[in-house]
Design a protein around this nucleic acid. Structure first.
Lengths: 226, 226
DNA sequence: CTCCGCATTTGAACTAGTTCAAATCACGCT
DNA sequence: AGCGTGATTTGAACTAGTTCAAATGCGGAG
């Protein structure tokens, strides 16, 4: 590695090239998808040699990780409006919709992105060490969803909920990738139906007198993660 | 294509070769995983040329589909004992454990298998037209789980439940792939915890007087699939 | 100015999935 | 036996991700 200039240092010479290659790659990914964008095409379009691209990026996979980071940034931006709401369900609904909105230009080839990311051995896996930073950022977004909601969430639940919601977001993404309905309306509908339910479940989770099924459900979720 | 001999016809000449290549491929997949098994290695080990392998199998991906079919067959075999039980929860639990047992030799490289299968555009996707047969067989297994359970399942639910359980099985598989615990104990535990819950939920689903949360949950599941 | 060391850049080569046109083979027909 | 036809089989080549040893360029020490 040894290329990332320490923050604050005078911009190293090659950083320009790095930026150029990255921008080009992201543009081509968006235009043609991941699989159909070759490293040679990226290098050509950026006006450098293939090996030069490999000097700055360990692999095509790492370029993909940068793509995820970019999506993540835009997801947060797009979530601003939703984070102005009050109820947990509403906030969550808005943030999930924002996620779908941000990803929608990539639906056609999201499958090939996902195919790489789903492999636990891939650095692009959302659970890998390499994506720790991106994962933290994503979870932080859902922490905002939880912390800012007005009927405050029960203390016990508050600690784990952000990560759970992030997992739910991954689940929605998985559903979305396979959703071939017009403009992914089914995913939109899933979000609209499920988030009020989640909101209610969380709101009631601390009250006594829940039916045993609900109690079991919450207990199950807790158990599975230990 | 034009190679699959119509059932009952005298065995075509090349069928032998096809069998040989397939058997070799499955063995190598089991030994080294999907990615690390090259088409050249398969051809070498089978004593034929690479292009000959491509004469019988459209792609490496198709070999993967055959692998899935094999796993599917073994899953059914391994499920025999569980299908002798009575309660839905117990039956489901046994069948899911059977699935894990059958897959366990492949855990190390399951990620690379999954990475291909998760892509909706891949013929290996469990939702693709190409795997329709394998999918039907898998769903049929869960149909057996449902139909044979002793407090019979509510008519309304019975129609959709097999497919839902199959989806749940996919979910468990996804969890299993990412489960790095010793011998995938966490997945085992997940199954043990979740299946009694599912059993109870189904048993109660037709009774009146459920709490609203449970009602909503069932309604949600139904809605999401339409 | 010149030279050294290091960052940057490159062309060529390697691996692996896939394709293709050209053999080769098996077999029924004359 | 000789031959035509379609099923098999093959070597060579193409594409794309990746690696590597060899340039090239640049900035500071002498």
């Amino acid at each position: 590695m040894g290329t990332s200039s320490p923050a604050g240092a005078p911009p190293a010479h090659g950083e320009r090239t790095r930026e150029l290659i990255l921008r080009t790659a992201l543009r081509l990914f968006a235009e043609r998808g991941y699989e159909r964008t070759t490293m040679r095409a990226i290098a050509d379009a950026a006006g450098v040699s293939v090996s030069n691209a490999y000097y700055y990026f360990r692999s095509k996979d790492q370029l993909l990780q940068e793509f995820y980071a970019e999506i993540q940034r835009r997801h947060r931006e797009e979530s601003a409006e939703a984070l102005g709401r009050t109820g947990l369900g509403d906030r969550l609904r808005g943030v999930l919709h924002a996620g779908v909105t941000v990803m929608s230009p990539y639906h056609d080839f999201a499958g090939s992105f996902l195919g790489v990311a789903i492999n636990p051995r891939s650095p692009s896996s959302p659970f890998s060490v390499e994506s720790a930073a991106a994962r933290e950022a994503a979870i932080a977004l859902f922490r905002d969803v939880v912390e800012g909601s007005k009927p405050a969430v029960d203390r016990q639940v508050r600690a784990d909920l952000p990560e759970l919601l992030w997992l739910a977001h991954l689940g929605v993404t998985l559903y979305w990738v396979h959703d071939m309905s017009y403009e992914q309306d089914r995913t939109r509908r899933l979000i609209d139906l499920a988030t009020p339910f989640v909101g209610r479940l969380i709101r009631l989770s601390r009250l006594p007198g829940m039916c045993p099924i609900t109690t079991d459900l919450l207990w199950l979720v807790r158990k599975v993660r230990s």
